[in-house]
């Protein structure tokens, strides 16, 4: 489903990703771990198509298509979803209004019929209940004044609403209390599907107890430096990144 080859990415002329290789097949969940500043969020933004993240070398292929050539909204319509590390506030736009506009924009781009307000409302309410997102939150301006955990839960609500094919979760677990972590993990697991792939970025092995990955990649210095099964997370926890990076070298 996703094939990243020798990816080099620069921001403002500064190279952040330096020859990254990664491939995920449909039905799999992969985790990315790595020290602060190693380029995890950069990778997630590049996949989602953020402006200013220049691909200087290499390629990203998504379902056989060159992802790098598409604007972010086209990627979203084709099923790429990024749950952001720092969700953005949009004053004056109610969460419900935002969800409806986004969902219908995606549907329109795919040539599907738009859902009416009542249809969206029903679906959102159902999914929100499962994630403990309150009715009141849906009426408030998007992310404005939301607590860190509320913002993260709203990201997962969007994932469950848009039903993406490739979901990238950038530190969705940071800032979540134990109960919320479980809810979010349940939400993610409910979306596990043979037709869907997920890339979970995290610092904590704890999340991987709930969302068991098929593969773990360690990102350091803009490259994947180690890979393994779910037991790699435990090893990381025990040894720390320094040692793993040294071992790999």
């Amino acid at each position: 489903m996703l094939e990243i080859k020798n990816l080099h990415v620069s921001i403002g002329g500064k190279e952040i990703l330096k020859g990254l290789n990664l491939s995920i097949t449909a039905g799999q969940v992969h985790a990315i771990m790595g020290p602060n500043g190693s380029g995890k969020s950069t990778l997630s933004y590049v996949l989602a198509g953020r402006a200013g993240y220049d691909i200087t070398q290499g390629s990203i292929t998504y379902n056989g298509e060159d992802l790098g050539a598409l604007p972010p909204e086209a990627r979203a319509a084709k099923g790429v979803f990024l749950a952001m590390q720092y969700p953005v506030e949009i004053p004056g736009v109610t969460t419900m209004m935002f969800l409806k506009s986004a969902l219908n924009a995606q549907r329109r781009a795919r040539g599907e019929s738009e859902l009416d307000a009542i249809g969206v409302l029903k679906t959102v309410r159902r999914k929100a209940a499962a994630l403990n997102v309150s009715e009141e939150m849906l009426k408030r301006a998007l992310n404005v004044g939301f607590s860190g955990g509320e913002k993260k839960r709203l990201e997962i609500l969007q994932m469950s609403l848009f039903e993406p094919k490739l979901a990238i979760l950038d530190e969705t677990d940071s800032g979540l209390d134990i109960d919320a972590l479980k809810l979010v993990a349940e939400g993610v697991n409910a979306l596990r599907d043979p037709a869907r792939a997920m890339l979970v970025i995290t610092h904590y092995q704890r999340l991987l107890d709930y969302i068991v990955p098929d593969r773990i990649h360690v990102l350091a210095g803009g490259r994947i430096v180690a890979e393994g099964g779910k037991e790699l997370a435990l090893e990381l926890e025990a040894k720390g990144y320094d040692q793993i990076v040294k071992d790999a070298a």
């Binding site: 989602a48 953020r50 909204e73 990024l82 736009v93 986004a102 969902l103 995606q106 848009f162």
Partner: peptide, 19 residues
């Protein structure tokens, strides 16, 4: 803000209108 909206499927102009 623009990127967030676009990443959720809104075109640039639609995103501006919304914001």
């Amino acid at each position: 803000q623009l990127f967030y909206c676009q990443a959720r499927g809104l075109g640039a102009e639609e995103a501006v209108a919304l914001i």
